[in-house]
Design a protein around this nucleic acid. Structure first.
Lengths: 180, 180
DNA sequence: AGACACATGTAAAGCGTTACATGATTCT
DNA sequence: AGAATCATGTAACGCTTTACATGTGTCT
């Protein structure tokens, strides 16, 4: 059983909303889905090529009045079908990897200060992310009724809020426990 | 800048506690760290080979009274140094990917029933995991004072509890929002 | 005898990151 | 003129998964 190419569906999903160039796709990813699915140019351009040869997208050269020309990709009917069939399929399960936990687990080998430092900087990072999500949530709430897509964006953002808060409360508890 | 081979450190970490065969390493991984760092045989055996040729571990053939013979690996002084230097280094940041969120984000393209189904089965999965963690926590608490390693195991397990609870509370909220 | 767990590996293919390479356009 | 941004890509490398391959020992 071969693995699913999720990156392909991320691109199809974004293109199902609007036609975009590779460069614009990268920006859209950063804005919308990078919190749970980040992709770099090294994946975007090769994948667009594959999508094109599979006729899941089409490509048009656009030469705007200002700025360099772009290759704008649009989703085809086949592409849309492919996206829908993936969306309907069940998610089998999740697995995540946390380098912080891997280090922490083995940290009986080193001084406690190393663990405390790592947890503190973890907390700082996650706090900054939580603040970012809070700002995004504020701006999203004001446009929530305009478009049914926004409801789903709201769900993913809400996930971010829950998980970041969990990170922070764990970090506080972990720090206390270590200092005991 | 080449990426760090975390798998290598996971193996060194486990071997710093006790000498193990590849097969036993796999079992130890499942028991101890699979929640945040899972590895299969396809990584373990080749990595042990590399560790051996870098003289970070040694290997002895063990022929127990019962059962087939094993190749038991032990960490060397160099291996321990390598582990310590990694443990002391900062963690730069985390990134996670959630297929569920990726699908959910684009689910305005399909009926709401697909989203609800996915969230419900997500909740079932995460609830089962939370229960597992609760059981592990019970058995860990009774031996917590015996070994300073246990404190670090406790921290990682606590992380699991926090994050799974966050998953569950998000899932409930998300279901309510979708049904509105 | 057959099923199951023990035990060790290899090969292929795909995923993902990083570095590199190139050129156009806009702004200061 | 130089810096920054826009824009598109390739190549190398390493990580990860999956499937395959093989043989031993134990239990029923």
């Amino acid at each position: 059983m071969s693995r699913e190419n999720h990156t392909r569906y991320a691109l199809l999903g974004l293109l199902s909303h609007e036609s975009l160039s590779g460069y614009d796709i990268k920006k859209a990813i950063e804005l919308r889905i990078s919190n749970f699915w980040n992709i770099g140019y090294g994946q975007i351009y090769p994948e667009l090529k594959k999508l094109l040869s599979n006729e899941l997208v089409t490509c048009e050269i656009s030469t705007p009045d200002s700025g360099p020309s772009k290759k704008v990709y649009s989703i085809t009917d086949n592409g849309h079908k492919e996206l829908l069939s993936w969306l309907k399929k069940d998610v089998l399960g999740e697995s995540y990897r946390f380098e912080l936990l891997l280090k922490l687990f083995f940290s009986a080998n080193v001084g406690i200060e190393y663990s405390l430092e790592k947890i503190q900087s973890f907390r700082d990072r996650r706090y900054a992310t939580l603040e970012k999500y809070n700002r995004l949530m504020d701006s999203l709430k004001s446009v929530l009724s305009q478009d049914k897509d926004h409801k789903y964006m709201y769900l993913t953002l809400l996930f971010g809020l829950h998980i970041e808060k969990a990170f922070l409360s764990w970090a506080s508890e972990a720090e206390m426990l270590l200092k005991e």
